[in-house]
Design a binder for these strands. Structure first.
Lengths: 327, 327
DNA sequence: ATGAAAGCGCTAACAC
DNA sequence: GTGTTAGCGCTTTCAT
């Protein structure tokens, strides 16, 4: 039903080889009038190239797959923008596959899907691979790169913010504003969470603060995680909190408001992310801001073998959610 | 390099046909030991089926493409969840293609990409097609459906909220709370915006309120659009605003706070969307809430020819951003 | 500048 | 049950 080069060949009298050449723009292998004639007929037939067939014979695609873990927070758009932008520049198409949230099954499935389509590269966003995933990827010989996850393994490509630094900076900022009982809320138990925990602990140590285990309240980076943690922090006498994400900070902030606890007067918060949520919140949230677009750009650089920054720097952006405590 | 069924055939002594059969699980066409042997070798070789080749010969794919226009607001996740959910149920894979924001070129390109991959269906999310797009889609004979856009043309499939009703409900709610000068902020000049405008105007008319042209402030559904509109509304003496999106409402709210205009005391707002942003905002935003997940589900139903609701109902969710005006 | 022919990796009759 | 064979729509030598 759909027209093929065969149809065009029949209609123009040329062979399929010639038709293929002009359609593939193999310059100099055909005359102008030939081109004109073939293009005209192609248009008349509303011909569309069958990319599948082309990729099959060429044994390569110009497609990169982005597999994304749908975290209950909102940072991904910036990264995807960056990926899209850079990919377009170097002539790559990008398709996005969702893998649910920490859904081992879906995640594995998405990787298999990408592999079976013989994409030219795979970007894994916020994905924590299990050994099966990693093995699958490795033996596929397809280039891949983790994004916004730092597996702390030199041999596997990844691009992310420096989580250690991010948490360190946030913690240090609170300390420099006089806080001495500082919580860390909403982090997970995987790589990102562990790295942020390490940065947080290092900052406490460097400033001779003896942290308590309960100061660290794990979660899933969600709004709810922040909301839930409020009471515990009140009981612990926490005055400053490093939130694992903007969403977590917003949840904590909402809980504080509902309990009439002044923010930042009685509770200060620094969030990690720096998305628009920080401005929407009232008072606006001071944040350690990630450069998401840059992470996206670097990740495709990394994927295609160009030198790329593994750790994209973060910056602290002061807004209105931190108060100074008199000492 | 990558192993093919040929390699497996050679290694097992069977023909490629037999290998193909067991790999495609054509039950009853092979014996158990044959299956066992072939599967084992396949595993040893870490064989992956080449989906491209399969799709080429079968002339069909189990993939639907979702082309999304990246609106500067945040409603899309719920819809994608719904799409993914329903697609998985009926054995379809989904790939997502980004088309920028109102970028004619990228948009057209994305459609062509989807078409050239011979997907089994195309979902166009928040996409305003130009005639070229529509023609492309129509003559491709590929099934397609617009999502979150209602083209108001019976002949083209679409699933969205009832924009007219949404705006009517929001406006009526403000009127019932005593408001008589009511703004509409952030809508675009395309289908969605026009339909909401009509609903807004109808509500005013039904309650004998004589609206003014300046009460309607167009925009792009963004936070900034809401922020920018505040001063104009103050000068106009607007007391209640229907915001085109949660983001727009949040922007307006922020501007009000910065000018020390009490919300909802001096300015009431109803937003259209009802995402988590409504809860994050302080005070929480009363909204006309869209059922995004349902929209996603219905859109794949629509795509595959199952009966589907074209207009998914909205509901008004009261929160804290509307005050009653004494009359 | 153009055509003939050989595949790319797979499935699907059609034999046996 | 399994093998043989003919493609799917395209690109790419190798001729001419």
């Amino acid at each position: 039903m759909k027209p093929t080069i065969k149809d065009i060949a029949a209609k123009t009298g040329f062979s399929i080889a010639t038709v293929s050449r002009v359609l593939a723009k193999k310059q100099g292998t055909y005359s102008d009038k030939t081109q004109e004639r073939i293009l005209k007929v192609a248009k008349d037939l509303s011909y569309r190239k069958n990319t599948l067939a082309m990729e099959l014979v060429k044994k390569k695609t110009d497609v990169i797959a982005v597999i994304v873990n749908v975290t209950p927070t909102n940072f991904s758009n910036g990264i995807i923008d960056g990926i899209q932008q850079r990919a377009t520049e170097i002539g790559l198409q990008v398709i996005i596959l969702y893998a649910g949230n920490r859904n081992t099954e879906l995640q594995h499935q998405a990787i298999v899907t990408a592999l079976e389509r013989t994409v030219s590269g795979i970007l894994l966003m916020a994905i924590e691979p299990d050994k099966a995933d990693l093995q699958l990827l490795t033996e596929s010989k397809t280039s891949f790169c983790f994004v916004s996850i730092n597996l702390a393994d030199e041999r596997v490509k990844s691009v992310s913010s420096d989580n250690y630094q991010a948490a360190y900076l946030a913690t240090e900022y609170l300390i420099s504003h006089g806080h001495r009982t500082i919580g860390l809320a909403g982090i997970d138990h995987y790589h990102t969470g562990s790295q942020r925990l390490a940065g947080y602990q290092a900052a406490l140590k460097d400033y001779s603060i003896h942290g308590q285990a309960e100061w660290v309240q794990p979660g899933d980076y969600s709004y709810q995680a922040g909301y839930n943690v409020f009471n515990a922090y009140q009981e612990l006498g926490i005055t400053g909190v490093v939130a694992a994400s903007d969403m977590t900070a917003a949840g904590l902030q909402k809980a504080a408001q509902e309990s009439n606890v002044k923010l930042p007067g009685a509770l200060s918060v620094v969030s990690i992310d720096g998305t628009l949520i920080c401005d929407i919140a009232t008072p606006a949230l001071t944040s350690v801001t990630q450069n998401f677009v840059q992470i996206g750009i670097e990740s495709v650089n990394c994927l295609v073998g160009k030198s790329a920054t593994r750790l994209v720097p973060v910056t602290l952006v002061e807004r209105e959610s931190v108060a100074t405590i008199k000492v």
